[in-house]
Amino acid sequence: MNKVECTLCPRHCKLAQGQRGDCRVRTNVNGKLFSLVYGNPCAVHVDPIEKKPVFHMLPGTTAFSIATAGCNLHCLYCQNWEISQSQPEETRNSAMAPEIVVASTLQAGCRSIAYTYSEPVVFYEYTLDTSRLAREKNIRNIIVTAGYIEQEPLLELCKVTDAASVNLKGITDDFYKKMCNATLRPVQDAILAMKKKGVWVEIINLVIPTWNDSDDDIRGLARWVKENCGKETPLHLSRFWPMHKLQNLPPTPETTLSRAWDISRAEGLDYVYVGNIPEHPGNSTKCPSCEKIIIKRYGYQILENHMDGGKCGYCKAPIPGIWQ
């Protein structure tokens, strides 16, 4: 009686009166489903766009970054578990309507808004309304997401999304089941849908010792990205740091990330990056045509930028991304 079924993400939570979804932020009130976090971010920061990470869009600019409590995944290694695995009652929230987010973005001199830290899928309505307003003010929208969302809401969001930093956490269903209590297929489908709709997609993979760091895992990931998204799709291989429920593991060794970097480039991907090791050469963008470094980075910092509009400043080869 009075049950509702949330159709936002593949979990399809069926909720009785007063019950909350798996995400902790959507609830059934008298037979209607409500978001509990609309206009109530628990994290608001101005970040370098490179922190998202998005490397092929407006390098050196800042992104006004917001998040609410909740997430529809429960990854054992979550780096932001304090907010993602909390109810909105457990976080300190600000009252920030979409209009205020957009005004604050302009005031802070940011070129984009990033819906990030936890999971924009669970604060979908807030993301959608803010993105629409941002578009009117010529502000770019970035979603930083695990991509665990149904197609219909995703396609609606794609209309106002410029870039997506999608966390493809592993390349097997077994990994998703054990690590995230989720499934792989919807994430792959979401990535493909975003590409098809013209959203600029960069794929992130956190390389976790013993979980997804074998040669086969990395090769499988790089192959899937190349064959389905194209070799021009950036792949970020990030260093794992022991967090949340995976504190028994060591940080990913640098040698593992260098090996993963080599394997992914050998598979034919043009733009493979190494994250969370600032001094690693894999932080910089190389032109696949002349092989010169066109954007030299130290972590999130841009040290040199030799882009000429959307082209390599040396050989004039086009570099995919959003540069203006």
């Binding site: 159709t7 409500f34 309505e125």
Partner: peptide, 12 residues
């Protein structure tokens, strides 16, 4: 929480 808004995607 005071950010209550009706959700877009659900079945009645």
């Amino acid at each position: 929480p005071n950010g209550i808004k009706e959700a877009r995607y659900y079945r009645s």
